[in-house]
């Protein structure tokens, strides 16, 4: 019987404690800077090296390049860049390997949609998703453990 009474006392004491839940949709939740949300893509920085496409464990990035419009310059520029958020697991590997930080993480996490089609994000959408971009990027993973 004592155990039951102790338990009752414990719950009664917690009755008046401060509540811990978030008022989420009313008050937005601030995620820490490193949070891995939906990516932001900067087409101007991309050098079409295909590293992000290759590292992606779920193969959800699709990109194509085209020759540089200015014939005097070498290399390619990005033509299309799509991420399929049906299967993206936000694992952070694409942003980790990108040598130019063309693809970076943001803190935006609201991905819910009524249709699967809306989860297919193209270059324009990703470029427009430019708020709350993560300030730190993963350069500390370069060989030798150089810190940014």
């Amino acid at each position: 019987m004592l155990g039951l009474a102790k338990g009752l006392g414990y719950t009664l004491r917690r009755l008046t404690e401060k509540k811990v839940t978030y008022r989420y949709p009313d008050v937005p939740v601030k995620m820490p800077d490193r949070f891995r949300g939906i990516q932001h893509f900067d087409p101007d920085k991309c050098i079409v090296c295909h590293q992000c496409e290759r590292i992606c464990p779920t193969q959800c990035i699709n990109l194509t390049g085209k020759p540089h419009p200015d014939p005097t310059k070498k290399g390619k520029v990005i033509d299309t860049y799509d991420i399929n958020f049906e299967i993206c697991i936000l694992c952070d590997l694409c942003t980790e390997v990108c040598p130019t930080e063309a693809i970076v993480m943001t803190n935006n996490f609201e991905l819910a949609a009524y249709s699967r089609d809306e989860l297919f994000k193209d270059r324009e959408w990703l470029a427009a998703n430019n708020t709350n971009v993560r300030s730190e990027n993963s350069t500390n993973l370069l060989p030798g453990g150089k810190k940014s």
């Binding site: 004592l2 155990g3 039951l4 102790k6 338990g7």
Partner: peptide
């Protein structure tokens, strides 16, 4: 607190 709430509880 958990021990108070649960461990001594006779039903448990």
């Amino acid at each position: 607190g958990y021990h108070k709430l649960v461990t001594g509880n006779e039903i448990f």
